[in-house]
Structures are given as structure tokens and as C-alpha cells.
Amino acid sequence: MASQGTKRSYEQMETDGERQNATEIRASVGKMIDGIGRFYIQMCTELKLSDYEGRLIQNSLTIERMVLSAFDERRNKYLEEHPSAGKDPKKTGGPIYKRVDRKWMRELVLYDKEEIRRIWRQANNGDDATAGLTHMMIWHSNLNDTTYQRTRALVRTGMDPRMCSLMQGSTLPRRSGAAGAAVKGVGTMVMELIRMIKRGINDRNFWRGENGRKTRSAYERMCNILKGKFQTAAQRAMMDQVRESRNPGNAEIEDLIFLARSALILRGSVAHKSCLPACVYGPAVASGYDFEKEGYSLVGIDPFKLLQNSQVYSLIRPNENPAHKSQLVWMACNSAAFEDLRVLSFIRGTKVSPRGKLSTRGVQIASNENMDAMESSTLELRSRYWAIRTRSGGNTNQQRASAGQISVQPAFSVQRNLPFDKPTIMAAFTGNTEGRTSDMRAEIIRMMEGAKPEEMSFQGRGVFELSDERAANPIVPSFDMSNEGSYFFGDNAEEYDN
């Protein structure tokens, strides 16, 4: 993207840094990872977990959730003011799984939030270390993106479920800051804005008074975040219109849905970061690795190297396929839920299948599930090659597409044709070009129609051997075009429920 120079890199967003050079960025990201790792080690000690239990991804998720809940100030305040039966607002906890007599047992633990905050700050040299908290939120978000298709949420806001490739980060909490905003897809931002506008339509006082002023500035800020994701002048001009509207209503909703559809071809720039579970960072720190000293990046080879040398386990339900569970977590670790499966298959070195073909449910185990038949197995999170994460949407291309997802959002900077089903997408653009945004709409449609099938995206960008740390010898991959490109292809993934 041309304006790259004016933006802070995501590592800076990730670490609240002012302008830093590459070495400083690597050190501050490393410091953040160190903090998460030290916190995780301490929690495993508190909970008396064995090494194996500490490497269980379900335990990692519970521990991450506990610290996120302990620092969720708004919710904590709300819980104190609106006490609900049987919930102690000062405590947080969740299921911890232990191996007892050759069987997995679930144990519900409860801790004072104050105590968890103390352990977290102690692991982070006394700081609140917001960057580390956001990092864990993005890992949870990436896992949700890989596990669930947001059909219901899309339909509720009037969008087409086939636009799911635009929904990265749709389950990120509001408090995820600049680093969170960077990884949100165009569809996620559109959905947040539509929800806001709908509230304004239904509630006369939404934009009024002292609160209304705050609401208005939040609305304009979200519009600017979305505008910054678009790469064409016409899309940005249309966002200006939406932002400046005196009284946002149905016309703005129409414009936003139009823009979301246009992003299936004229893709937005959305950041991709490899955020790993805390149970990967903990053992690495415990083994003596100093992330701050060595430096770390979320968008280069580092996460690949770390996963190459990590042992992570997962509980497996009786009829689940461990290899499929591994694929789910591998995609989440690489922030690749909406990437082209052919690119992923090449990088991973084994075939990556669409969601609907995987015999696996989510990673988390519900409290009512029976533990008797639970097994555990090693997650295979290694890769054959590594590639640089991208934040450009890439230019655009036609490809055989599917009944489910009709476009992709690249996660890796790797040369390819970008699949999208042009006739299906263009069919949504018939007729409606009147109104105050008509010239911009016409211009956007013209650009979409001009998108050429034979153009290559990320020209000359390749993948790298894991021994090639400096990215000196790019390998331009070859793809098996007979395979499906979309992950949520004609899909039956479970729906995400809060």
C-alpha cells in the first residue's frame, strides 16, 4: 500500500510504541512475548500442572481467558453494579484439565481477579502490559475465525453469508486497541457500523446529549479505520460520505453494504499476525530463551520457528480426527482463516481442507461434555516452508469459486491468482447506482469489472525454506488448481455463540 510509510507498523501498534527502528520493534515485541511466557509459567505453578498438562491447549485457553477477564475493567465495573446470582464479580476462573488415573478430569478453578492481575503485572515488570493482553485477544479471535462461520451475524446486519472472507476479527472485544483495529476485516468494521446506525434509528437519543457526542466521535473513528483499509480513492470518498452524514440511517447502511461487497474484489488491507497460545510461549521462556534479547516478529519467520520446536497437546472428542484438529489450530496460529487453501497447503506441506470436510468441533470443551471418553493427542503445528504475512489485500483475480465463501483475504505475501467468483459478486451490483453516491458507485463498479483474471497478485513473492531466515531465496510455489480455494466452501461450520 502506498501510504505504508505514514502508518505505524503493526509491531508498533502491538507494543504501543512511538516510531521505533526494526531492532527496537523486535525487542519490544519480544518483551511482550516474554511477559506472556513468564505469566503462563507462574500460572502453571499456581495450578500445580504437570509439564504435559501445561502444554494442553484447553488449559492455555482457560488461563488466557482468566487474565483477560481480570483486566476487563468495563465488564468488571458492570458486574459490580449489576450483581447477578451466583456470579462473584471479583473472581474469575474456568475449567482446568488434569490427568488422573490414566483419565482426563475437569476441575473448575476460581481465583481472585486481583490475584491474577498481581501475577500478570509481576510477570511483566510491574506494568499492565496491555500489548500482551491484546495479543491474547487476537489469538482467540484468530481461533474463532478458523472455527466458526459468522453466517447468522452477517444475515442479521443485512449482509450476504458468502462475504465471510471479510469477517476477520469479528469476535475481537471493543477494547483491543490499535492492534485489534489493524486485524479487523472490512466486513467486521461494516458490521460494527451498521449495528451502531441501527441503534440510532431505533433509539432517538442515541446521537443526542453528552453521551451522543461520545457516540458520534466513536462512529467517526470507526469510519476512519474502515476508510484506511480501502485502497481505492472511490471507496475512500464513499467512506467520507458515510462519516460526514448528519443523521446516519438506511442510506448509510446501503452504502456500507455496497462497500463491503466491493471489497470482495477491490480488497481492503487487513493486517495478519501470528499470535500463538500462551502454552507455546511459556515452555520456550522456561527453556531459557530470551525473546527480548533475541527479538521477535509476528509477521516473519519467528512464529514458524517457534511452532517448529513446540509440543502442544489437545483434548480430542471420541469421533474427532486429531489431524483435522491440528489443521484448525495451525490455521489459527498463522492467522489464515480466509487465505486461499492452495497457498496454505503449499506452505504447510500437507493438504489443507475446507472447514466442512474437517471432523472436528471447536477447541474448547463445553462444561456439560462427558470427560470419560476424552483422549488427548499432539497437535501437528509444523510447516514445510515459511512466508511473510501481508497486510495488503493483493490485486484481484477471477477463479472458480464456491457456493460458500466467494473470495479470499490473503494472509501471506505469496504470488498467486486470487480466487473470487466474479459473476456471483457482480450480480449483486445491478441497477442500484442512484442517489448521492452514484458517481462513486459507478466508478467502483467500473474498477471491479476491469479486474483481470490473468493478473498475478504479489508478483514474484515466494515462500522460503525454514533454514532461509533472511528470506534470501524465494520459492514461487505451484498450486494444484483442481483443489478448492475457499475454506468455508459450501460450508456447515458451527455458528459462533458468545
Score class of each variant (00 low, 15 high):
38 R>V: 04
403 A>I: 01
448 M>D: 07
444 I>W: 11
474 P>W: 03
178 A>V: 12
363 V>R: 01
290 D>H: 11
404 G>D: 13
243 R>Q: 11
374 M>L: 14
338 F>T: 12
465 E>L: 00
420 F>T: 13
126 G>E: 10
84 S>D: 00
394 G>L: 00
496 Y>D: 03
290 D>Y: 09
487 Y>S: 01
318 P>I: 11
151 T>E: 07
188 T>S: 15
291 F>N: 02
454 E>L: 15
390 T>K: 04
122 Q>K: 04
143 L>G: 10
347 I>D: 01
344 L>I: 12
263 A>H: 02
496 Y>G: 11
214 K>T: 03
98 K>E: 05
50 S>I: 00
149 Q>P: 03
53 E>N: 06
441 R>E: 05
472 A>P: 10
422 K>N: 11
344 L>G: 07
58 Q>I: 03
426 M>N: 10
83 P>M: 11
435 G>C: 05
449 E>A: 03
114 E>V: 00
119 I>N: 10
445 I>A: 15
16 D>S: 03
186 V>W: 00
117 R>Q: 15
257 I>S: 01
336 A>Y: 03
455 E>S: 12
197 I>R: 01
15 T>G: 00
93 G>K: 08
264 L>W: 10
478 S>V: 09
274 S>C: 11
289 Y>F: 12
405 Q>L: 02
5 G>C: 14
384 R>M: 05
236 R>S: 08
275 C>I: 14
234 A>M: 05
476 V>P: 09
426 M>R: 05
279 C>V: 12
382 R>K: 11
118 R>Q: 11
309 N>H: 13
55 R>W: 02
468 D>E: 09
401 A>E: 03
70 A>N: 04
110 L>G: 03
249 G>R: 10
75 R>A: 04
448 M>F: 02
266 L>Y: 05
163 M>A: 12
64 E>Y: 12
117 R>D: 03
339 E>Q: 07
349 G>D: 08
174 R>E: 05
280 V>W: 05
172 L>Y: 01
248 P>E: 04
382 R>L: 07
201 I>R: 01
362 G>C: 01
230 F>V: 12
7 K>R: 02
156 R>V: 11
493 A>S: 03
374 M>V: 13
83 P>N: 13
400 R>T: 07
95 P>I: 03
473 N>T: 11
352 V>P: 08
25 I>E: 02
303 P>I: 10
197 I>E: 00
127 D>W: 09
360 T>C: 15
364 Q>S: 09
73 E>A: 11
64 E>N: 07
103 K>H: 12
209 G>A: 04
383 S>C: 13
332 A>I: 04
439 D>P: 03
488 F>I: 09
79 L>R: 04
92 T>H: 07
176 S>E: 04
168 Q>G: 03
98 K>H: 13
240 D>N: 13
447 M>H: 14
308 Q>E: 01
356 G>I: 10
316 I>Q: 02
286 A>Y: 08
148 Y>A: 04
300 G>S: 14
449 E>D: 13
197 I>Q: 05
148 Y>R: 01
255 D>K: 10
150 R>G: 12
331 M>E: 02
397 N>S: 05
285 V>C: 15
19 R>C: 08
248 P>L: 09
67 V>F: 09
43 M>C: 08
415 Q>K: 13
52 Y>Q: 02
398 Q>S: 01
14 E>T: 06
103 K>I: 08
359 S>Y: 02
431 G>R: 01
60 S>D: 05
368 N>M: 14
259 L>C: 06
45 T>G: 05
92 T>M: 10
415 Q>M: 13
77 K>C: 15
89 P>A: 15
331 M>D: 03
386 W>C: 08
13 M>N: 05
375 E>F: 12
228 G>V: 09
118 R>T: 11
73 E>F: 12
162 R>I: 10
17 G>C: 15
376 S>N: 14
7 K>S: 00
70 A>I: 07
365 I>E: 06
423 P>E: 01
321 N>E: 02
342 R>W: 07
460 G>S: 14
18 E>G: 06
429 F>M: 10
199 R>T: 11
382 R>E: 06
133 L>V: 09
66 M>E: 08
303 P>Q: 06
491 D>H: 11
91 K>P: 02
29 V>Q: 02
127 D>S: 13
246 R>I: 01
119 I>D: 07
176 S>W: 02
250 N>K: 07
257 I>R: 00
366 A>P: 08
491 D>C: 11
470 R>P: 00
480 D>F: 12
289 Y>R: 13
434 E>Y: 03
254 E>C: 11
429 F>W: 04
338 F>G: 12
40 Y>A: 12
385 Y>S: 04
391 R>M: 03
246 R>W: 07
65 R>L: 03
109 V>S: 06
286 A>R: 13
101 D>N: 12
114 E>L: 12
40 Y>D: 12
185 G>F: 03
139 W>S: 08
78 Y>N: 05
156 R>K: 06
326 S>C: 12
149 Q>H: 08
293 K>V: 11
191 M>R: 04
66 M>G: 12
4 Q>L: 14
90 K>P: 00
80 E>M: 05
261 R>K: 14
179 A>M: 07
477 P>N: 01
310 S>Y: 15
241 Q>H: 05
201 I>P: 02
335 S>K: 02
191 M>C: 11
304 F>N: 10
178 A>K: 12
191 M>K: 09
478 S>F: 13
351 K>G: 01
359 S>F: 04
215 T>L: 05
197 I>A: 14
73 E>C: 13
56 L>W: 02
358 L>I: 12
407 S>I: 04
200 G>D: 03
14 E>F: 04
477 P>T: 08
129 A>P: 02
344 L>Q: 09
2 A>K: 00
17 G>S: 11
261 R>S: 03
78 Y>V: 08
67 V>P: 01
442 A>W: 00
80 E>G: 11
73 E>L: 15
417 N>F: 05
282 G>E: 06
92 T>L: 06
31 K>R: 15
75 R>M: 08
24 E>T: 13
483 N>C: 00
196 M>C: 11
173 P>M: 02
454 E>S: 12
353 S>W: 14
401 A>G: 01
263 A>V: 09
184 K>R: 07
230 F>C: 11
374 M>E: 02
23 T>G: 13
164 C>P: 05
133 L>M: 12
119 I>P: 01
53 E>L: 06
470 R>M: 08
303 P>F: 04
153 A>N: 08
302 D>S: 14
201 I>V: 15
353 S>D: 00
329 V>Q: 05
17 G>V: 05
397 N>Y: 00
133 L>K: 08
495 E>W: 11
84 S>T: 13
291 F>R: 08
25 I>S: 02
382 R>P: 05
310 S>Q: 13
359 S>D: 00
118 R>Y: 08
495 E>Q: 08
42 Q>L: 05
298 L>E: 01
288 G>Y: 09
363 V>M: 09
32 M>V: 13
415 Q>H: 04
240 D>S: 13
1 M>K: 11
258 F>N: 02
156 R>D: 02
433 T>W: 01
312 V>Y: 04
93 G>V: 05
215 T>H: 00
356 G>C: 08
220 E>L: 02
229 K>S: 07
357 K>T: 07
433 T>R: 14
28 S>Y: 02
111 Y>E: 11
489 F>R: 00
348 R>N: 09
444 I>V: 15
45 T>V: 15
217 S>V: 14
277 P>I: 06
60 S>R: 09
157 T>I: 15
35 G>A: 13
364 Q>P: 03
111 Y>D: 06
129 A>D: 00
422 K>L: 13
59 N>H: 12
289 Y>H: 15
122 Q>E: 02
365 I>R: 00
448 M>R: 07
350 T>H: 11
466 L>Q: 13
162 R>S: 04
344 L>T: 13
424 T>F: 03
453 P>E: 00
88 D>A: 00
199 R>Y: 13
310 S>M: 01
206 F>N: 08
403 A>F: 01
400 R>E: 08
287 S>K: 10
269 S>A: 15
447 M>I: 15
353 S>T: 12
27 A>D: 00
498 N>P: 00
5 G>P: 11
13 M>A: 03
171 T>N: 10
280 V>G: 05
235 Q>T: 12
284 A>C: 14
163 M>I: 15
493 A>Q: 13
337 A>Y: 06
299 V>N: 14
10 Y>S: 04
